[in-house]
Design a protein around this nucleic acid. Sequence first.
DNA 1: AGTCTAATTGACCAGTTGGATAGTTATCTA
DNA 2: TAGATAACTATCCAACTGGTCAATTAGACT
Lengths: 223, 223
Amino acid sequence: MTGELNRTMSSHIAGELKTIATHGRNRDVTRGAILAAAEQEFARHGLEAARTEEIAKQSGVTKGMIYHYFGSKEKLYESALEQVLAPLLVSLQQFATPESEPGAALKAVVERILQLTGEKPGVPAMLFFEVIQNRGAYYTKAGFPSLYHVLATILKRGQKKGVFRRLDAWHTAVNIVGACCFYYCTAQRLQSVWPGDRKPLSTEMIERHSEEALSLIMRGVLA
Amino acid sequence: MTGELNRTMSSHIAGELKTIATHGRNRDVTRGAILAAAEQEFARHGLEAARTEEIAKQSGVTKGMIYHYFGSKEKLYESALEQVLAPLLVSLQQFATPESEPGAALKAVVERILQLTGEKPGVPAMLFFEVIQNRGAYYTKAGFPSLYHVLATILKRGQKKGVFRRLDAWHTAVNIVGACCFYYCTAQRLQSVWPGDRKPLSTEMIERHSEEALSLIMRGVLA
DNA sequence: AGTCTAATTGACCAGTTGGATAGTTATCTA
DNA sequence: TAGATAACTATCCAACTGGTCAATTAGACT
């Protein structure tokens, strides 16, 4: 998936220093810069309203580079989406094992979601754009496993064991994700609504969000 | 806010029949059709990616009409946003009274949010676009009261009374809204992820979402 | 040093889009 | 019936946007 890494540093030298030192003229560095800028732009505007020119400007290269490395705006979008979602969705698979205790499993999954979104606050926005604007077309295309399946499975198992209360697993799975992710989508607005000393994207507020979301969810689900 | 209604039906005749019978050539009907189409288009694509041509097509009029009645794409957006948000936010003010019992008040507010979003599933999407793409600029411009203030106030009061558990009112307010609204943002995708017999936007599934969201929230918040 | 590969650039293009404008016609009033 | 108002249409335009392409140049290898 990640493709050929370090094609440029095949010489004797460590290469790492070289890569960093090389300001331009480096495949991986440029590709990475474009991807990073694309991630931001797509998270702020979605595929449709994102501007390739802006991505180029932010990554410090010419627009032509985007087409040289990615071929089209859509393909760039796919790459950015995959780069962002893969770590989250792949890492969740481990929690789907039927052996684990449901309460602990749910807690672990929620914490993982909160951790990853906390590290990359743009991810929830990208997901929203993808679902609403593109109706999940590229999401489906990437063939990622559904986050909701993992959650629903755990919820059903916990309910059968009597650990969780009576609930609709499918609906609850969605609402759990909502309680985790919505915060990052509305963070910009919170800044002008919340008291001034609360900076929604500061590390402490992110930390508190994780605590609060987890509490709300666990309390809301346990029997 | 709603402006002059029924300017056209000032004659002797009842007017209602007239308004309906008149296919074109009616200020209010045309304006309404444009607004309705705009609401859909903006909910699906956001201000930036929305196309005036598409709005015109969907409302069955020429693009020129949009500029005749609304002046610009942005002004049309403001009107659509206001039309959609006003009922929700205005109606919530009544729950902010300090006399009401906090538990009941919270339940009432959440139910109202769920009712309104259930009736207009496009509203949450419009809110997301507004916050993420436009950073809440038009939202602020409209001068609506913050939904979060109402919720946080109730939460704080309930906490002081010991009805609610120890929690951060500001964060919890956000997470509550997330648990209510996220469903409608991801509904399109759910259709291809959920079992086939569950249609996310069917009346029964919407009803169930309301129940599940309310349960999750109340359980998650009560002492 | 010389050569080859590929990263990079800048000028350019065709299609789209928000918006303006001049003209047409239905309806209301006197 | 005549005129005035305004709803409505068709056409056009300038700016923007995704995408192309030929030319340039920095590094890698011999």
